[in-house]
Amino acid sequence: MQRKLSYFRLAWLIFYGFFFFLMLELTLKYIPFSNTVSFLAIKQTEVTTVRSYLPIFYLHVYTAIFCLLAGFTQFSSSLLANYKKVHRAIGYIYVISVVCLSAPSGIFMGYHANGGVFSKISFVLLGILWIFFTVKALITAKQGKFKLHRQFMSRSFALACSAITLRLWKVILVYLFHPSPMDVYQLIAWLGWVPNLLLVEYLIRKKQT
């Protein structure tokens, strides 16, 4: 069988690779361990009053990057065709990272999110939906319902990408409008994942017709 690296695939890999690298850079800021580095600088209230905040925060920061690894391999049909075991291995890494590590810690952090109730609802909802779609994707794969598996994994991955799209929206909105920090934060808490999910839903429906 011929392995084809189409231009589309190449473009996706470069594009996605660039943002994956940015996320990796962010993750590395948290090594070595510190109470006050980066985002924690404005979370000292939580760090000092909520005992489990710091460990759960670091759990999220150190494991979430592994969820994004899936973006390189799991959507390649040629990899699936030729290296099914790799697809499954990385698939399991993704599922465990999301369901056991990143999403639960994300929900906890979402409960303590900046920007008031409006942001908190968004992040908690994001975490719940992320777990739901990922579990559904696992179950449908095990049942051999691969079309449904692809649809649920697309939804799950769209939510995983919110890590990237949230930050992209932030850069764009700040550049255009220079708003106050929490005003922009409340917006990107929702902008970060809702449009992603809507896009995926649209593509799924389009593919069905």
Binding site: L22, L26, K29, T36, S38, F39, A41, I42, Q44, R167, L168, K170, V171, V174, Y175, P181
Partner: peptide
């Protein structure tokens, strides 16, 4: 000062 530093580092960049 702590918040000023955070604003310098993170307000308009890709980080959080």
């Amino acid at each position: 000062s702590r918040f000023e530093q955070y604003a310098t580092d993170s307000y308009d960049t890709f980080g959080r």
